[in-house]
């Protein structure tokens, strides 16, 4: 591995991570259907959909929810290419490990023989198909929530949902400072690249990476101490108080009514 390649890949990775977040932030603020909903309503309704996706046993219901999520993506003016790219990054990670064995180990009617030995059963294919669809639906709904909700509003919604304040505050600060540390790490990589001619061995790169990680950790510890003092300075007494500036409007009620109707229909189809 050459030094240039190793460093260039890391710098590109950091930059890409930052760009990706910026794109998401911008999409969450454009005037689309989901962006216009109250974040609390969005969190609750999409979470309910995800729970129902877990309960659903039929392909038509899961396909209908997938189509619904794609319609919402369109109504929210999210570029389809970006959406599918993010969706299909995760699906193999979450499903392959479980879905592939299920094809072969689920007993039932033989459907296909692989290499003359392993047999894919009809029931196995159905189980794997349902699993892939469930994961796709859940990820699609989750992505919809993340892409159309500014991170700050998402935190306010979590606070409103009574998630412990400490957890929400830590989430908020982690997100805030990860960018600063990413910038620091990026600068360290660039500083090394600017003094690099030729290549390094893998062992040298690993040693340098270890030192860089340690330095970043020491810096983050110093930063956390200073941040704590800055919070104390402005009156922090153990729990962060915030202004809640959310309000539910007509569009939210329409969406809630639609969600309840759709979920009732799903429930009816499951238990009829």
């Amino acid at each position: 591995m050459t030094g240039g390649g190793f460093l260039a890949r890391n710098i590109a990775g950091f930059t890409q991570a930052l760009e990706s977040v910026l794109v998401t932030e911008n999409l969450s603020r454009i005037p689309g259907f989901m962006q216009g909903l109250d974040p609390r309503v969005k969190v609750i309704t999409l979470l309910l959909f995800i729970i129902f996706v877990g309960l659903a046993q039929d392909f038509p219901i899961l396909i209908a929810i997938l189509i619904l999520s794609l319609v919402l993506v369109l109504l929210s003016k999210i570029p389809m290419a970006l959406y599918f790219k993010r969706l299909f990054i995760f699906i193999p990670i979450f499903t392959a490990v479980i879905a592939i064995p299920a094809l072969f180990i689920t007993p039932g009617t033989p459907l296909l023989s692989v290499a003359g030995k392993a047999v894919i059963t009809l029931q196995g294919a159905r189980t794997a198909g349902l699993l892939i669809l469930r994961v796709t639906d859940s990820l699609s709904l989750g992505l919809l929530l993340i892409i159309t909700t500014p991170w700050t509003k998402f935190l306010v919604a979590l606070r409103w949902l009574r998630l412990p304040s400490l957890i929400v505050d830590i989430l908020g600060m982690t997100y805030r400072y990860i960018f600063l540390l990413l910038h620091t790490a990026n600068s360290m990589f660039m500083a090394r690249q600017s003094r690099t001619i030729g290549g390094f061995t893998g062992a040298e790169n690993r040693r340098w990476l270890g030192r860089a990680l340690a330095t970043t950790m020491v810096k983050s510890q110093y930063l956390s101490e200073e941040v704590y003092l800055a919070m104390l300075s402005r009156g922090y007494q153990g729990e962060i108080r915030t202004l809640s500036e959310l309000n539910i409007r007509g569009r939210d009620f329409v969406w809630m009514a639609f969600t309840l109707s759709a979920l009732s229909l799903i429930l009816w189809s499951i238990y009829r």
């Binding site: 805030r176 200073e226 941040v227 009156g235 922090y236």
Partner: peptide
């Protein structure tokens, strides 16, 4: 704390809230 305010040298230390609005409202709210 109401009567004394310190602006730190490094603004990244001081700006720990998710948005500018939350930052500016932080002190009075606490």
């Amino acid at each position: 704390r109401r009567r004394v305010g310190l602006v730190f040298q490094d603004p990244d230390v001081q700006l720990f809230s998710p948005t500018v609005w939350e930052e500016v409202t932080f002190g009075p709210l606490q």
